[in-house]
């Protein structure tokens, strides 16, 4: 006899946030969420492993190694952003219905959530949590690993400028996206558009940089980038992560207490 699926029931022991997280899982299905997460996390882990295994015992670095590190940094930031934004639920204005929606502009979810026993703050906090775990954490880990390697592997001395640049670019991406996604109290169609433009400009800059020979050589000669690599970069990375967290918790979430859904 076929096994009958268990009927979902209201669980009074769950907090509002837990209940909303389960709702998201119901919506997208646990299977697909796990599959996508495994793929993204696997790719990110592969990149971090690639950095360690490729450069850990190298005595001498060439320009190609610089572009390799930058390429890994770029891919990691994009995988991390994609992963963190998968159940991203900041409320934005939809161009389609001229009403506000969630999940990358689908207005129906926004309206649905707003009719349920939920608060905007809960939906927002869930999104932010996802951003911290699936975007900020991998980028921080990558930067720490890269800069520790830069300190302990002698051959990295010739690539410190690239390490500093990779750290700066990944942190800039984190700050820009955290501000655009979580720091704008009144999220509008305009901020949605800026977010999209910033995403593609960063992508174009990253990809374009590979096309100019001598770019990495030039970076490695920039004193400030070289000075950044190592301990300063690790400190800066941690500071940025703490800044993003504190800004959200101490400023933005307070503004969302009792906030209306679409104002």
């Amino acid at each position: 006899m076929a096994k009958e699926k268990k009927q979902i029931e209201y669980d009074p022991s769950l907090s509002e946030e837990k209940r909303f997280q389960k709702l998201i899982t119901d919506l997208w299905s646990r299977f697909w969420i796990v599959v996508v997460r495994v793929i993204f996390v696997g790719l990110i882990a592969l990149i971090i492993f690639g950095i360690v295994s490729s450069y850990f015992d190298k005595d001498f670095f060439e320009d190609e190694d610089g572009s390799g590190i930058m390429g890994m940094c770029v891919c990691l930031v994009f995988f991390a952003l994609g992963n963190g934004m998968m159940n991203y639920t900041e409320l934005v204005v939809s161009r389609l219905k001229k009403s506000r929606g969630v999940l990358n502009g689908c207005p129906s979810f926004g309206i649905l959530y707003s009719t349920m026993p939920l608060t905007r703050k809960t939906v927002h906090k869930t999104s932010f949590r996802s951003f911290m775990i699936w975007t900020v954490l991998p980028v921080v880990t990558f930067n720490v690993v890269l800069n520790v390697l830069a300190m302990i592997v002698e051959g990295f001395q010739s690539l410190l400028g690239i390490v500093g640049l990779a750290t700066l670019i990944s942190l800039a991406a984190l700050v820009i996206f955290s501000v655009l996604c979580f720091g704008v109290y009144k999220s509008t169609e305009k901020t949605e558009r800026i977010r999209t433009i910033v995403f593609w400009v960063l992508y174009a800059v990253f990809m374009g940089s590979f096309m100019f020979s001598g770019f990495y050589q030039w970076c490695n000669g920039v004193g400030i980038l070289k000075a950044l690599a190592g301990i300063p970069a690790i400190v800066l990375t941690v500071a940025v992560a703490v800044f993003i967290l504190l800004r959200e918790k101490l400023v933005y979430e307070k503004k969302l207490t009792f906030a209306a859904w679409f104002d």
């Binding site: 979902i8 709702l23 309206i111 649905l112």
Partner: peptide, 21 residues
């Protein structure tokens, strides 16, 4: 103004409501 996502179905929505109410 409905809140029904065109690709979804009522069975799935019933699950969401069961979770929340």
């Amino acid at each position: 103004d409905d809140y029904l996502v065109v690709t979804s179905n009522i069975k799935k929505y019933a699950k969401l409501f069961a979770r929340m109410y």
